[in-house]
């Protein structure tokens, strides 16, 4: 009985991808735009982070250029190139920027990747239909950590 319950709980945790020491979006603490602690309680994987730069909800290169990723065509120009971002910003600052850039850069065009509240006319992904309630964040806690780990490797 007990074992069953535990494994059920574990499955639930795995299914939603939310581990016990994950900080949910509404609990993230920003200090001057930076976030000190890992959001997933784990270290990030820079290789996984590199992939997120180009795909899905990350798609960072829609707006940013990264010279070392020059094999990816069509890099955008909306934000600054991220070359040297690992020199310019600490890990905590990068985590804050990726999780919710609007804290560091007031009014920025950069989307908040780890925020789930306060949207106007929220849609259900790209369907154009309304999304009831709050959405999943654009990136999971672990994906934010992976991206941050990747950004810290961007030194000049």
């Amino acid at each position: 009985m007990k074992i069953l319950a535990i494994s059920a709980a574990l499955t639930a945790v795995l299914a939603t991808g939310v581990a016990a020491d994950t900080v949910v979006p509404s609990d993230v603490v920003y200090e001057d735009g930076a976030v000190a602690m890992s959001l997933s309680g784990k270290a990030g994987d820079a290789a996984a982070g590199e992939k997120i730069m180009n795909k899905g909800a990350g798609n960072c290169i829609a707006c940013h250029q990264i010279t070392s990723l020059d094999y990816l065509a069509f890099q955008g120009e909306i934000g600054p190139a991220l070359d040297g971002a690992g020199d310019r910003w600490s890990e905590a600052e990068l985590r804050g920027i990726v999780a919710n850039a609007k804290v560091m850069f007031e009014g920025t065009m950069m989307p908040s990747f780890y925020r789930t509240e306060g949207f106007y006319r929220l849609g259900d992904a790209y369907t154009g239909k309304a999304h009831p309630g709050n959405p999943e964040p654009l990136l999971t806690a672990q994906q934010v950590e992976d991206v941050v780990a990747y950004l810290t490797t961007l030194t000049e």
């Binding site: 106007y120 006319r121 929220l122 849609g123 259900d124 992904a125 790209y126 154009g128 309304a130 999304h131």
Partner: peptide, 8 residues
């Protein structure tokens, strides 16, 4: 509008 992940 749809491309902003909004309800159009």
């Amino acid at each position: 509008v749809r491309d902003t992940r909004a309800e159009t």
